[in-house]
Amino acid sequence: MNQSELAKERYLELVKKATPNSKILKNCVKAFIIGGLICCLGQFIHAVLERFGLSKTEVSSYTSIILVFLGAFFTGIGWYDKLGNFAGAGSIVPITGFANSVTAPAVEFKKEGFILGVGAKMFIVAGPVIVYGTLASVLVGLFYFFTR
């Protein structure tokens, strides 16, 4: 088969035409609804916690913790991947999706042991979030320090 650069280019054009696109509108509607609902759940938890007379930071921290718990729990019982298959970014982007991305490898790599399996693999998906989140915070921190 002709594998020249030109032939490759032509073939990739052919591939583009033959490959069905994701049903982006339908996916966006699903992501919107599920993502919106998860945020409303967060708002509700927030409102309930406020009644206990906690400080503002405590309320938002506990809200995160509870959402993370829910994400981890529904991952464990095997529901979150089904929700993700339906909702796409709607369940990936909220913090429950962060919990899912930590819990899923932890559960999956249990067979490789608790140190090199669960321990080492827990952050194969979420690790970059923490790495680049921290780096970004240092950058804006530096900026803030010198300009305040």
Partner: peptide, 17 residues
């Protein structure tokens, strides 16, 4: 899936192709 893609419980969508 475990070797080539993601852990099974990760909530991702698979594209139509």
């Amino acid at each position: 899936e475990k070797q080539f893609r993601f852990p099974l419980e990760l909530g991702t969508q698979r594209p139509p192709s």
